[in-house]
């Protein structure tokens, strides 16, 4: 008898949990995660400026490399935030 094995492996990741959304931005702590690409700072600065007008206060973090996930210290800096905007560039 020939046994054929499925080579694809059996690891199945759980679907990530997405956060509940707040009813408004007023009084929330806003985090900005800049991936360091060219012009990301200008685009995200303007985003922060406009969202601060909604009453959000600002924390800013920057990735050392856009091609890698954010280092633990960047995530730690954003943990205190209620909402985050991240990006961008190219």
């Amino acid at each position: 008898m020939i046994v054929v094995h499925d080579p694809r492996g059996g690891r199945v990741a759980a679907s990530p949990t997405l956060a509940a959304r707040p009813p408004s931005l007023a009084g929330l702590r806003l985090g900005i995660l800049d991936n360091g690409k060219e012009k990301a700072d200008a685009l995200l600065r303007r985003t922060a400026e406009l969202l601060e007008r909604d009453g959000a206060s600002l924390t800013f973090a920057r990735k050392p490399s856009f091609s890698r996930v954010a280092p633990p210290e960047a995530i730690d800096a954003l943990k205190m935030c209620d909402i985050v905007v991240t990006g961008l560039g190219g």
Partner: peptide, 23 residues
């Protein structure tokens, strides 16, 4: 996007701004 998912898992709603070439 992976960073956004990490933050979402921490309970933080995260918006991603991306150039459309990366769709």
């Amino acid at each position: 996007m992976r960073d956004a998912v990490t933050l979402e898992a921490l309970g933080i709603p995260t918006a991603i701004i991306v150039n459309d070439v990366f769709e």
